[in-house]
Design a protein around this nucleic acid. Structure first.
Lengths: 222, 222
DNA sequence: AGATTAATTTAGGTTAATCTAAAAATAGTT
DNA sequence: AACTATTTTTAGATTAACCTAAATTAATCT
């Protein structure tokens, strides 16, 4: 049996280590989970004993195959619930994270499969993040940060890196949503800000912080 | 802040004490929660300290107003989720209890209100139990046990007392569901079994155990 | 390479929720 | 009313998850 806390640690290791492939530091986990490094050491030992993680002291942690399976499952549930909240219960994308954080731990295979069906098998959550399938596989898209688009280049908004409520509300305010077409009108060397046009209409100036937290899929120029 | 465990104890006290009005015994709670009486004593003290329960040693427990509010809220969530599982996710009434037991602890007022709306404000769960409203009030129906129906009397099935999977599957097998019309054809003094007719067609003999776990609303005779 | 800094681990302790076994209070019975 | 049985409570331990402070290992920088 796996506890809720263990699941959260495994999920963190999975996400910090780019879907479980890389090795993760004790401090990194501690920061992500808002806990202390010493607590992480304890837990990581336990996860290793249980066969969910590979761990040698001072060498960082990674997940075993079994650990990755568990992590992908939790992430799958988290993201499906987020879709549910937005699609069926009128939540906005900045409201769903904390609730999905609770719902991701509900245990029932039938529940999650039926939810998947109800939502018509979505591939991405409301923030554009991919939803792992039943086997834990995720479809990778070739998204890049808006910051890396050249002047005059065009892209479609496909995701956000920062999912904080304040950032998402900022995007809402400026009518930037998943699917919006963004054109880089000009870039400013001085402060790395850029002027962009949204869906061919509104033109605004955005800071480097914004451009570095918005994923786009680049489009061919006309 | 209230913990998951505290919520479960409060819910038990609420349900064992007929929606929080009566006093409940330590052993009763222990049995309901499959734990030991000594654990119950500890927890009940804590609940009293926190203002959720009234407790004097050796005198049993009851809920304060605040405790009742919390309990009703948990029960409301449990039953709404059960409706959701059956109505939207193709679950049968014998499958929903354990999952609702997990879902009832999810904390989000908006979530539960939106769920309520999605389900079109149901008043009863799939087993016929009433769903408390936002204020914790429940609509009481004048249901009686099938066992208490006289010969030739008619009733409509409105609920089950035993919600175990085996009992619910028994009912499914004999095509007894909420809303079914049941006529008492005859009663047997010897073993307290009775012969009933379901929806004017199928006639079967049921044991006292069955008749004592099925709630009906009596109908006037023709 | 040696010294300093940073990251990680160990040691020892705390809290919530549980348990067993023993003691105390209540309830039931003659 | 006294004795017995049952229920409930107390006392003392255990486990999971956490913490602080000190010790250790690794990384970085002259």
């Amino acid at each position: 049996m796996i506890t809720l806390t263990e699941e959260n640690y495994i999920k963190s290791i999975y996400q910090l280590g780019r879907y479980g492939t890389m090795t993760v530091s004790t401090n990194g986990i501690a920061e992500a989970l808002e806990t202390k490094a010493s607590s992480v050491t304890d837990m990581v030992k336990k996860l290793a004993e249980k066969g969910y993680a590979n761990y040698k002291r001072y060498q960082g942690v990674s997940l075993t195959l079994e650990g990755k399976k568990i992590a992908a499952d939790v992430v799958r549930k988290h993201r499906l619930w987020e879709v549910f909240l937005v699609e069926k219960l009128n939540f906005t994308w900045d409201e769903v994270h904390d609730i999905a954080e609770q719902l991701e731990h509900i245990k029932s295979e039938k529940l999650i499969n039926e939810l998947d069906k109800l939502l018509d098998y979505p591939t991405h959550d409301p923030h554009g993040d991919p939803i792992p399938d039943k086997n834990g596989d995720i479809k990778k898209t070739d998204k890049i940060l808006l910051f890396n688009l050249a002047e005059n280049a065009k892209g479609v908004c496909v995701g956000v890196k920062d999912t904080s409520s304040s950032f998402l509300k900022y995007l809402d305010k400026h009518k930037i949503a998943l699917g919006s077409e963004i054109t880089v009108v000009s870039r400013e060397d001085f402060d790395d800000s850029m002027v962009i046009q949204i869906n061919g209409t509104m033109t605004i100036s955005i800071s480097q912080a914004v451009a570095n937290n918005l994923f786009v899929k680049e489009e061919a120029l006309d």
